[in-house]
Design a protein around this nucleic acid. Structure first.
Lengths: 158, 158
DNA sequence: TAGGATATACTCACTGGATGAGTATATCAG
DNA sequence: CTGATATACTCATCCAGTGAGTATATCCTA
């Protein structure tokens, strides 16, 4: 795919998940090229501007795969942004993948929840605002866990 | 108060709400001074390093008040970070203030929720990932609303 | 049929939040 | 005696993100 098309597709398929400007897409693509995970081939076109066709390098494929299977840290926003994005790519790759990464993500959230609850219990009663903040984070994460458990019903393997 | 003390107090009272580095506190303070909302008076100390005593200017007091009474946009993270901070300052100022800003914040959240639900209903069924993302945001915001309604029980006026 | 909006495809200068390390002195605990 | 902690602040640097710009072709509409 070339940058322009990638940008368009992501921005329409995931526009309620995260927002990015076109120039920022190109910035990131430039950096990925510097890192050597994608490579660009210049293509001339008549009637339309030139474009750079982007392909994943071997290194890029390996890093993508690693990213795809690494659970997102158990924080509400990160899960909305990164986990849903992983799910998006997983769903395009195979029918069995989504449920696998859903289960692993749920497990990570359960671990984070335990940690947050422990931190909450350790907080002295007079730390009112820290308690309020942690309480909110815990509730958010519980909600996220419910949501994610519900999510697997959208991905059936047959 | 001077920068060092302000930094310490905020970072302990609100450490579960948001994190900031010491240098970033000073960065922000420098900017606030440039904007003319605070002014610094240099004080020499023997036995200890010099310090800058910071005071709110008239403009600063006005802007602080405006900020304090302006509901935080209805987004989960912003509410955790900014609303709890407003609540923190409100609680230090008067016993009746917290409940007032809690009620106004709750109202803002209800409005945002309506908006999100409408956007969700308008999304075509085939926009799976956008629907998942919006669904999660809606659940998060519902949770936030429950939390905030519960919060007022910690602030009694007598 | 002229004119303006939209689509294709990408570049670039700049801002501003955030990091992390550094500086200098005093005190306190082991 | 010495090494950690407290006081108090500075500074260079990075890098994500913005917004405007460029150039051409096609499509819609009055």
């Amino acid at each position: 795919m070339h940058g322009y098309e990638l940008d368009k597709q992501l921005r329409s398929s995931l526009r309620e998940v995260w927002r990015i400007s076109q120039s920022q897409t190109y910035n990131i693509l430039k950096n990925l090229e510097k890192e050597g995970v994608i490579s660009a081939t210049h293509q001339e076109q008549d009637k339309k501007p030139d474009k750079d066709l982007l392909t994943l390098t071997e290194k890029g494929k390996a890093e993508f795969e690693y990213w795809l299977y690494t659970p997102t840290p158990g924080r509400a926003r990160a899960i909305r942004v990164e986990f849903i994005t992983r799910l998006f790519f997983a769903a395009h790759l195979s029918a069995s993948l989504p449920n696998r990464i859903i289960q692993e993500q749920a497990e990570t959230i359960r671990t984070s929840l335990k940690d947050l609850r422990m931190r909450f219990d350790l907080l002295p009663m007079d730390q009112l605002f820290n308690r309020l903040g942690l309480d909110l984070r815990i509730r958010q994460l519980e909600t996220t866990l419910n949501w994610i458990e519900n999510t697997s019903s959208f991905f059936h393997e047959d």
